[in-house]
Design a protein around this nucleic acid. Structure first.
Lengths: 333, 333
DNA sequence: CTGTTAGCGCATTCAT
DNA sequence: ATGAATGCGCTAACAG
């Protein structure tokens, strides 16, 4: 069995209360007592039982980060930022994968968050709608990352996807492209991200007086492997596109590969821009132009929002719009 | 306050014992009682408090996966496999980042594992040596992933890095390359991975009767950004290398980029092979030859080993050597 | 300044 | 088949 406060107390010849005080760094302890307790603590190699402490305090000091897939670069990089910032504030982050499956998302929430295992949740979902989540929130606060779905009564942190996408496409148009295509999306009809990115794309085209008719191809997901068929479909058009806006950098990476195979020169024949600015994009050949969401900013805003709500559960619901940046590299000339 | 067993018991007019039995699916409950309890359970939307349950049972049902950096593709993909397999077994995985910092690794172990917050730990470390870890193990089992450091008294899962590296380099040599260089490594003198990969490289060169003199360049870490300077250094040699073994796919990606910038054709002028087979490597231009460790196999072996040790803490220490595969793509001709 | 003790929510042993 | 009561390890309210 592990060594408990009691064991230490007996050893040091004091009460558990005193040991607890020493462990928790209280003031007002007689120097002699403290020394004796410290000695016993070290000798027995005492470790406070976090489970017991959490039960007692009703707080675990852990926040949960729920992501669709941790092996997707964007989420990996976002998770990294969250862990980074949270640990600078003394918080532990528990990362969990939902696989984008609403069932599993629900289960994580009920079995861990509602069960008091974590103090709060940072939730990046493609599956569940905010409305569904609100019902699951229970006693633990949830902060939504990414897309805000309609009618949500939850704090939310994200970027303006419509505007970011509009700027990305406008950039290609400024570079003289007139037949700009777009690819992206995912199976779920609930994929709000693709909805907004498509909207931004269409806005940019319309503003420039260009037709987007037949130039958008939906993909199965946002991964590299899903770009090839979309690209093939676009290249089969009577009039080939001369610009391509990919809803994610991974899609763009897959597209670059598919284009190279078809001997389409980037950017000469076709300019490409992605979304997310994952690290790989700086090193691809050609390097990828993209939209860089302020990941550190998202992480900070999200963690701050969660901690604030922990202190003040009744506070007003907030919406945080974090910045983004257009990164121009070789793929868009 | 959250609803407790007691609340449900009162509502259903039974004792907490009975409610607990229903919740935990015990047999031998009068059908009428069960129905009444079920109704109360649903009406109050009862969620068992995991913290209390864990305190009582001494088990949390959660295993911790400690990785250096989750935004590194290899670790992201490995984490994905671990979560995948563990959840198929009904286990929850908590992922934590150590940043490769021995201090932080130690802290995670003492503050979470020793504190009973998790049942066991899957530990992928660059910093701490197994010997250090063994002392920290305390009451909770630890399974080491990746490199086995000397004198470890812990279960370990990994691949044969020496042999895998030897085969990678031998592959380049078979393709007619004679001046094969190698890049990789990390700051820490404790980086066992680079030690073994370098050893495999040297073995292959020696076996082929080739000199490796001055052909290995150490990098700061295994990331894309660290390859450029190493490549530049190699290209400055009197006689340029015609083959390059990178200790990671990320390094290889950085190298491909640097080579393209210097107008070195791959594989015509220089054949490249990486290590890890991250997803991006299939889609780069040229696509990257690499060594593919059986990530799913590592995940399975590791989780199995941990669960086995939870049941039988006194069992014999095991060493699991998981397979790997040489993947030939465009970069090695 | 420090000892005693209640109770966080649950599973479980001892009764019945 | 179910109730009553104990204690997991800890913190904090209440003494003194």
């Amino acid at each position: 069995m592990a060594v408990t406060l009691r064991d230490v107390a007996v050893k040091a010849g004091v009460s558990v209360r005193t040991v607890s005080n020493v462990v928790n760094g209280f003031q007002h302890i007689a120097p002699g007592t403290r020394a004796r307790v410290q000695a016993a603590l070290e000798e027995l190699n005492y470790r406070p039982n976090l489970v017991a402490r959490s039960l007692r305090q009703g707080r675990t000091g852990i926040i949960m980060l729920v992501l669709p897939e941790i092996n997707v670069s964007y989420f990996g990089e976002l998770a990294h930022e969250v862990v980074d910032y949270a640990s600078s504030l003394g918080c532990t982050v528990q990362i969990d994968e939902s696989g984008g499956d609403p069932q599993r998302e629900k289960q994580l929430l009920t079995s861990l968050a509602q069960a008091g295992w974590v103090d709060g949740v940072l939730f990046s979902s493609l599956g569940l709608r905010g409305v569904d989540l609100a019902g699951l929130a229970g006693t633990r606060p949830i902060v939504l990352l990414g897309e805000r779905t309609a009618g949500t009564a939850l704090d939310h942190v994200g970027i303006d996807n419509v505007e970011a996408s509009r700027q990305a496409v406008a950039h290609l148009i400024e570079r003289g492209r007139t037949r700009v295509a777009a690819i992206g999306g995912s199976g779920g009809a609930r994929d709000a991200t693709s909805k907004y990115r498509l909207k931004g794309y269409e806005q940019a085209m319309k503003t420039a007086g260009l037709s987007s008719e037949g130039l958008y191809v939906r993909t199965a997901d946002y991964r590299r492997g899903s770009a090839a068929s979309a690209v093939r479909e676009l290249l089969a058009r009577d009039e080939r596109p001369d610009g391509l806006f990919c809803f994610s950098d991974e899609l763009a990476a897959g597209a670059l590969r598919a284009l190279a195979e078809q001997n389409v020169r980037v950017p000469a024949d076709l300019a490409v821009i992605g979304f997310d600015d994952i690290e790989a994009s700086r090193f691809s050949t050609p390097s990828l132009s993209t939209v860089r969401p302020d990941k550190a900013g998202i992480a900070k805003a999200a963690v701050d929002a969660l901690l604030r709500r922990l202190d003040d559960p009744g506070g007003e619901i907030h919406e945080f719009n974090v910045g983004f940046e257009l990164i121009q590299r070789e793929s868009s000339g």
